[in-house]
């Protein structure tokens, strides 16, 4: 089986400081990869490099495109990369304000990607928006409200709906549950897990919350100081951590 995403030796420096160094990974269709590590360990830098938001200093990011097979994303032209970013890919930001258009209604937020890829029928766009709001448990009568009027959890769910409406195959998530209270987190995770399984999505989830990866991720990568220190199946890494830092991380979780 061809990996959906192949990452080879991605390195990013911020001046003299290392963002992330020599990271390689393969992501197969339908697989969810978790990336954990403390703040400043290079998780978000890595994710931005993979999603094409940042240009890495070295390395390759090869994506198995629908039309042309495996292609180096970093070598693509800007329009191609933008097109990929709004059809086959999705990016869920930690702060919904970064991922949503706060000045327009929820329906328009969901419809924007459809309109960007050429949908020009208002009725159909609206129908899909209603459908997707339903899937992320937002009442259909909130469709014309602006995201400002939504709670944090609803904003995050709206962001997910907006990203998944074009039926992407690969989702990048940066701390999708950050800043939400635990009961809302649990429901969001439940929803995400359902959507990922139902749509057969591949995902890369960056988080510092081990519970999130335990629930969502098939495989786990642990990062420290810009480098990957341990990889493996999620349960294996969490239940039998080998590297000293991973052991520290696992034992730091409060048991209630």
């Amino acid at each position: 089986m061809t990996p959906l995403l192949q990452v080879k030796g991605v390195t990013k420096h911020y001046g003299a400081r290392l963002g992330c160094g020599d990271v390689s990974l393969d992501l197969y269709p339908g697989e969810v990869m978790g990336i954990v590590g403390e703040s400043g360990s290079g998780k978000s830098t890595l994710l931005s490099c993979l999603a094409g938001h940042l240009m890495p200093d070295a390395g390759e990011v090869i994506y198995d495109t629908r039309a042309q097979g495996p292609r180096d994303v970093l070598g693509m032209s800007e329009p191609e990369r933008r097109m990929l970013g709004r059809t086959d890919w999705a990016f869920v930001h930690q702060n919904p304000r970064d991922g949503l258009r706060m000045g327009v209604s929820a329906g328009a937020n969901v419809g924007e990607r459809l309109m960007a890829v050429g949908a020009r029928h208002y009725g159909q766009i609206r129908e899909q928006a209603v459908d997707w709001l339903g899937r992320v448990e937002i009442a259909a009568d909130r469709i014309d409200d602006r995201p400002r009027a939504f709670s944090g959890g609803m904003q995050q769910r709206l962001q997910i709906a907006r990203n998944l409406v074009t039926g992407p195959r690969l989702v990048f998530m940066d701390e999708p549950t950050g800043g939400l209270d635990v009961s809302v987190q649990a429901r969001l995770l439940d929803l995400l897990r359902g959507l990922v399984r139902e749509m057969g999505l591949s995902a890369i989830v960056v988080t510092h919350d081990l519970a999130v990866v335990r629930l969502l991720a098939d495989r786990l990568m642990v990062m420290k100081d810009g480098a990957v220190v341990e990889t493996g199946l999620t349960d294996q890494v969490l239940d039998d951590p080998q590297h000293g830092y991973t052991q520290l991380l696992v034992s730091s979780v409060l048991q209630v």
Partner: peptide, 15 residues
């Protein structure tokens, strides 16, 4: 990249 222009028209119709 003109999808955004249609977002405005969508908002008009929605409201």
């Amino acid at each position: 990249d003109y999808g955004l222009m249609y977002v405005k028209l969508y908002e008009d119709i929605a409201h």
